[in-house]
Structures are given as C-alpha cells and as structure tokens.
Computed example of a mutant assay.
Amino acid sequence: MTLATGVGSFPGTDQRDFDEALRLVLGELDLPFLPEVPGRGAPAGMIGRTLGLVTELDADLQPAGWRLTGTSGAPAVDQRRARSLLGQDLDSVEEQASDHTGPFKVQVTGPWTLAAAVERPRGDKLLADHGARRDLAQALAAAVADHVADVRRRLPGSDRIVVQVDEPALPAVLAGSVPTASGFGRHRTVHPPEVSEALGWVLGAVRGAGAEPWVHCCAADAPLALLRGAGASGLAVDLSLLGADGHDVLAEAIEAGETVALGVLPSDDPAEPPTEKVVVNEVHRWIDLVGLDPGQAAERLVLSPACGLAGASSAWVRQSVALLHSAAASLS
C-alpha cells in the first residue's frame, strides 16, 4: 500500500497553527507525523527543536544562531524553551491521537546538518572540530533513543514509529562548501567514512529503540548510497533533483524491501497545481524508468512534498495534503 505523508514543517506563528496542522495530518494522511511550525521562533525550528532533545549538550541562541555553551547541566533559556515547546506539542499528539493504531513519524535534524549550523563555545561551526562533531553525534544518538521511547509511551497503539533524520546540509559537508563564520572561507571536506560512522550511530540508536530510521535530504546530489550504507531503511528525496545514480539507488532500496518517500509536490505554492492524474502518472513513469514491478514498488513507496511546507499558503497546504492522499490511494 502506498502511503502519503509530509516532510515536517507547516506555516504558522502560534500554538493554534500547530494544533490545526496536527489535526490535518491525523485526519488526512496514512502516515501522520509530528508537525513543525518554525514560525513560532528559533526554538521551534529544526535546529532548536533537535537541540531541545539533546540533554547532554547545552546551547544558547546568539544573533548568528545556536551555539554550544561549553557548560553542562544548565541549559539556557532558549534551549529550555525548545524543550518545553516540544513537550507541549507531544502532549497535543498524546491527546489528539490517543486511539491511533497506525504508523506515526517524527523528525530530527541529523548530526551533519547540526554540525554545519551550530557554533562551538569559542566560535565557528562544530564542523571545524573533529572531537566536537563526534560528541554531538553521540549525544544526538542518545537523545533520539529517549525520544522514541517517549513517543512510544504516548502512542502505545501505534504499530510503527518512523524517525526521519533530516540532512539537507550533508551534500555541502561532503563537498567542503559550508562557509566559515567569516564567510570568506569554507570548512574542509568531511570524508565519507566519518560521515557514515556518525550517521550510523544515530540511525542505529533509532533501530535499537524499535523504530524505523529514515533519512531525508532534499538537496541536489544527496548521497543516497552512503545513507543506505549508514543504516537508513527509508530514503526521502525530491524526485525532481534525482540524477541517474540516485534513481538506481532508490530502485535497489525498494528491491531490498526498504522504503522510498518520493517528493512529488512542490513545497511552495505552484502557479498551476497538478492534478491527481498528473501526480500518479509521474510516479508510474518513474517506476517504468527504474524498471521496477509496479506492484512491488507500490508496497514500498510513500508520497510527500519535495520539502517542508513552512513557506506555503494555508490553501496549498490543505490542497497538497488532499492531493497526496488521493494519489497514494490511486497507486495502491
């Protein structure tokens, strides 16, 4: 059965917007998920939300973004706010989805996107420090395991918990194109074995906690083979950005019984919204392109927007969710 889901983010600026997004995903999607509403402020964004989970490292919010404090046991007010906000959101999930028995997805920012975004106490990104990025990945792995346990406690009837690890900055990390704090230089390339090892700690923690580890990367040149090698059992991509190698890796994943989430809808309002027929035909063309059996592919496919919907209008959000649901039903 082909499922419909979302990447994570929704438009909005307050708790009412989160509650509305949660009602929408629970009511319309086969694979509902914990919405993110980054318009509520930095503690609700993908970086702050994940730092709120990581209790082993303390961080505060600076004008340039998030920074580790170098202290322990005394999280700053913004990190406490991130933890509190996530707790409130999970309380809403527990209340609204108390009888949910199907799959459910949560999202966390991956170790390499965090390392490319968060600063060390003495300045510049964690990416510049081998030991710091190693500590971050290990702390994130521990936090993710605890997060899965918390979600499972709140949704005891759910038969499948998915953790989507978001890594939009990973291609830039591998290419050595992440800018330094000054903006005049670039951080050195991190080599694939180290990238795979750190990501593997996080994905392994997800699997060890009894959940299903996916990785989402909506950037061009997503290293899909590396992600599979690190332990991802699900790959979420922007279909329009895939190169020839990417198509092959996704086909191999489906043949191996893994999940592929195809981003088939734009994340911003399109000039001319596609119809259900257009979406279904696009997926069928992709299945033909990679030479998969349609029945086998339909069982392992998930349909989603290409990326988050935080920049979209409320009208397109609702339309896209309905479109994904109907297209997935047609493919099934």
Rank of each mutant, 00 (worst) to 15 (best):
L85E: 05
D30E: 13
S98D: 06
A232V: 04
P35H: 00
E36K: 01
A4E: 05
V321T: 13
E95H: 08
V7W: 13
V7N: 11
A222P: 01
V264D: 01
G27L: 08
D124C: 05
V195N: 00
L331R: 01
T101C: 09
A329S: 15
P179Q: 06
A225R: 11
T69I: 09
G204N: 05
R188H: 10
S320Q: 09
V163K: 03
A76K: 13
Q88L: 11
G183R: 11
P266W: 03
Q164Y: 09
R160D: 15
G87P: 00
Q164N: 11
K125F: 14
L85A: 08
L227M: 12
P305T: 07
D124K: 08
G41D: 02
L262H: 00
V280C: 04
A198W: 00
L242D: 04
A59Q: 08
V165M: 10
L265M: 05
A315V: 15
L242Y: 05
V54M: 01
K125Q: 14
G295P: 08
R228S: 08
S177T: 15
A222V: 02
I161W: 06
E95Q: 10
I161D: 04
L140Q: 12
P273V: 04
A132W: 02
A115H: 03
V77M: 11
K105Y: 06
P192A: 11
A97M: 05
M1W: 03
L262P: 00
L57R: 05
C217D: 06
P294M: 09
D60A: 10
G41L: 01
A4N: 06
G65N: 03
A298M: 14
V162P: 01
S320W: 08
G73I: 12
E20V: 14
G263E: 01
G52A: 02
R154M: 04
A256R: 06
T13M: 10
V118R: 09
S240T: 11
T2K: 08
A59M: 09
H216C: 07
A181L: 13
T101I: 10
P171N: 04
A97S: 04
P11I: 07
D14N: 14
E119G: 02
G176H: 05
V163I: 15
